[in-house]
Amino acid sequence: MATGGRRGAAAAPLLVAVAALLLGAAGHLYPGEVCPGMDIRNNLTRLHELENCSVIEGHLQILLMFKTRPEDFRDLSFPKLIMITDYLLLFRVYGLESLKDLFPNLTVIRGSRLFFNYALVIFEMVHLKELGLYNLMNITRGSVRIEKNNELCYLATIDWSRILDSVEDNYIVLNKDDNEECGDICPGTAKGKTNCPATVINGQFVERCWTHSHCQKVCPTICKSHGCTAEGLCCHSECLGNCSQPDDPTKCVACRNFYLDGRCVETCPPPYYHFQDWRCVNFSFCQDLHHKCKNSRRQGCHQYVIHNNKCIPECPSGYTMNSSNLLCTPCLGPCPKVCHLLEGEKTIDSVTSAQELRGCTVINGSLIINIRGGNNLAAELEANLGLIEEISGYLKIRRSYALVSLSFFRKLRLIRGETLEIGNYSFYALDNQNLRQLWDWSKHNLTITQGKLFFHYNPKLCLSEIHKMEEVSGTKGRQERNDIALKTNGDQASCENELLKFSYIRTSFDKI
């Protein structure tokens, strides 16, 4: 039985969820670079991206490699990797027998973001014989899940209580170790020597080791999670996991709180800001991140802002960003909400898709409305799209047979046209069989910064309504002859009103 693990408890099935942008060198404390989270699957090609990484700022997932063999891993080693800020997950990587050479110096898994409450997941690794993470000293947050690894031993010899604050939620089941077939031998045991430290858990006094050649490092209890030197002297209180010299914040392997210019500090002093819960960055760093993602459509890219001495992905609820200094300031009234469309555009074809934009005031991208039916549609669209004030790209209304009016965009005031449909149009209306009105132009103002209007096959939309939009939106004169079809717009509506004058002759039985 794995020490510190839980057996036999019912657990939810383990679901495996399925960018080499360097964020800056980590400095003297770390020998390499800070790398983003990685999802490495199918083959070993991307694994080489770990070569210079000291910190993975995010998670590391290595999974679904069915053609790899043990010899493929023999020359692979990433000794610079010290810390993973989120979680480490391995799933069905064939041929991998140990992690001792792959990650010989991995010391800390912070667990800032977890995989279903777990910071370390080893699942269905069919050839893994031992973990071998002999320098792993601290899992700051989260638990361990090690399950269905039929060859995995050296679990009962690990004292997880020396690595985690609590072992109650560890789930370590259905491994070879369960069948008591392992016969784990710690260093020196074969020669009758006791080389590794022994600890007591559940009444068992057991030597602690990761492999037959690597003991588990056990520091004096007084050192807590700070770690200790090879001689057993406690590291500085700002260290986490390990250090090369005692009581020196510049000799830590990793930091308990924050890293700044080669030393570990309790908090980031001005003019620095907390970033990702582990390091200090200056304003320029946060500003660069903001600008890199301002026009990016890459998933996970955030326009970072500053709030409460932190550089964070977005302002919290009730705050909006001051564009001059990136500071989050309290909103006066309802907060603006910028919604970034991942692929640059979004099609609204149902109430469900409209709900995804609920509360958005600025759309960074283009909207395509293609709704053919739905219950209580006008009210639903207004509830979900009615706060949109600005669209950076274009607005396209296409084959939306259920629409009679666009009044559900009740606050839309600006279409920038930074991206144009077919390279020309910022407003595009095609084949809307029941569209009769755009907006009530006596109450609604709309500016279209650039781009043209396109109207074709809107049989109940009168040309007068379209011409009014040209005047109000500032697009009059931009359109070419064929942009607004004269014969297919309003051709099934009563669009022309003329005053009919009647004269009559009164007659009676005795007068003409």
Rank of each mutant, 00 (worst) to 15 (best):
L29Q: 02
E33G: 12
V34N: 03
C35Y: 00
P36N: 04
G37A: 15
M38D: 02
D39Q: 15
D39K: 08
D39L: 07
I40N: 03
I40P: 01
I40R: 00
N42T: 11
N42E: 12
L44E: 12
L44Y: 08
T45Q: 05
C53L: 00
C53S: 00
S54R: 14
I56A: 00
E57F: 02
G58L: 00
G58I: 00
H59Y: 07
Q61I: 14
I62E: 00
L63E: 04
L64D: 15
F66P: 09
K67M: 08
K67Q: 01
T68Y: 15
R69H: 11
P70C: 04
D72F: 04
R74H: 15
D75N: 15
F78Y: 10
P79A: 08
P79Y: 04
K80C: 04
K80N: 13
K80E: 05
K80Y: 04
L81Y: 00
L81G: 00
I82E: 15
T85I: 06
D86A: 02
L88W: 01
L88F: 09
L89V: 00
Y94R: 10
Y94I: 13
Y94C: 12
S98H: 02
L99H: 01
K100L: 09
F103G: 00
N105R: 08
T107F: 05
G111H: 00
S112Y: 04
L114V: 08
F115W: 03
F116T: 09
A119W: 01
A119Q: 01
I122L: 10
I122P: 04
H127K: 05
K129T: 14
E130C: 02
L133M: 04
L133K: 01
L136C: 03
N138G: 11
I139C: 02
T140G: 06
R141T: 02
V144Q: 01
I146F: 10
N149R: 01
L152F: 01
L155M: 08
A156M: 10
W160C: 02
R162D: 07
I163W: 02
D165H: 08
Y171W: 12
D177Y: 09
D177L: 10
D178Q: 13
D178Y: 10
N179H: 12
E180A: 08
D184C: 15
I185G: 14
C186Q: 02
P187G: 14
G188D: 10
G192F: 15
K193C: 12
K193T: 12
C196Y: 03
P197N: 03
P197E: 07
A198F: 10
T199G: 07
T199R: 07
I201A: 10
N202W: 10
Q204I: 03
F205V: 14
F205G: 14
E207N: 01
R208K: 14
W210E: 07
W210Y: 13
T211F: 07
T211V: 09
T211A: 15
S213Q: 14
C215M: 15
C215E: 14
V218Y: 06
I222P: 05
C223T: 02
C223Y: 02
C223H: 03
C223Q: 05
K224V: 07
K224R: 05
H226Q: 05
G227C: 05
T229E: 06
A230M: 05
A230E: 12
L233D: 03
L233Y: 06
H236I: 02
C239R: 00
L240F: 05
C243G: 00
Q245W: 09
P246G: 09
D247T: 03
P249W: 07
P249D: 01
K251P: 00
C255G: 00
N257G: 03
N257Q: 12
F258V: 07
Y259D: 14
D261C: 04
G262P: 05
C264E: 00
C264W: 02
V265E: 04
C268S: 00
C268P: 00
C268W: 00
P269G: 11
P271K: 13
P271R: 15
Y272K: 05
D277P: 02
D277E: 14
V281M: 03
N282C: 02
F283G: 05
D288K: 10
D288G: 10
L289D: 02
L289C: 07
C293I: 08
K294V: 05
N295C: 05
R298G: 12
Q299P: 10
Q299D: 09
C301Y: 09
H302S: 10
Y304S: 04
Y304R: 03
I306P: 02
H307D: 15
N308S: 06
N309W: 06
K310Q: 08
E314R: 11
P316V: 06
S317Q: 15
T320N: 09
N322Y: 06
S324A: 15
S324W: 12
S324F: 05
G333N: 04
P336G: 04
